[in-house]
């Protein structure tokens, strides 16, 4: 079971709150199921063309294109590829591995959306070829503003399965 230090859980909630109503995103690194490092990654979904290179389905792309760039981050995230690469490189340097990918749902429940499942499924195929570890997916829901809900899932083959984590 994934163990996440309380300060890292708090830091993810802070990240989500700072960026609301936009979605935040980031990576958790660690070893032996213990998270030791949080990496905030910039959400660049608003950049021109971002929605067309990512694994969004046609309806999501159409929805994003109806929104202004500022609004796009309210319903989606795309990690800054450079920051993502730097985080993965830093993990290698520290001798830790990718444990989880996190992002926030500012107004919806902490359940993976179809877009989350599709993107994670596609990432699962390529990450194996690139020798990247299989991450868990953590979602921070701010639907209840007072009590943020954090949940963890495994996602593969178009299926999300609830997983457990423990605050330490």
């Amino acid at each position: 079971m994934l163990k996440i230090p309380q300060d890292i859980l708090d830091a993810m909630v802070s990240h989500a709150r700072e960026l609301a109503p936009h979605e935040c995103c980031g990576l958790l690194g660690g070893s032996d199921d213990l998270v030791t490092q949080l990496y905030r990654i910039k959400n660049v979904v608003a950049l021109e063309g971002a929605e067309t290179v990512t694994h969004f389905d046609e309806s999501k792309v159409a929805h994003l294109q109806l929104l202004s760039p500022e609004e796009r981050a309210e319903i989606a995230f795309v990690m800054d590829a450079h920051e993502q690469a730097l985080a993965l490189k830093d993990m290698r340097a520290k001798g830790i591995r990718l444990q989880a990918v996190y992002h926030s749902h500012p107004v919806s429940p902490a359940r993976p959306s179809l877009t989350d499942i599709k993107n994670a499924t596609e990432f699962d195929v390529i990450r194996e070829k690139l020798n990247l570890p299989k991450p868990l997916y953590l979602i921070i829901s701010l639907q209840d503003r007072v009590n943020p809900d954090l949940r963890v899932y495994t996602i593969q083959n178009h299926q999300a399965v609830s997983a457990e984590f423990r605050a330490v």
């Binding site: 995103c25 990576l27 979904v45 969004f56 990690m79 590829a81 179809l114 994670a120 690139l130």
Partner: peptide
């Protein structure tokens, strides 16, 4: 060579 979109979701 692998062209890989950054991690994304909604």
């Amino acid at each position: 060579v692998s062209i890989v979109p950054a991690i994304a979701g909604g």
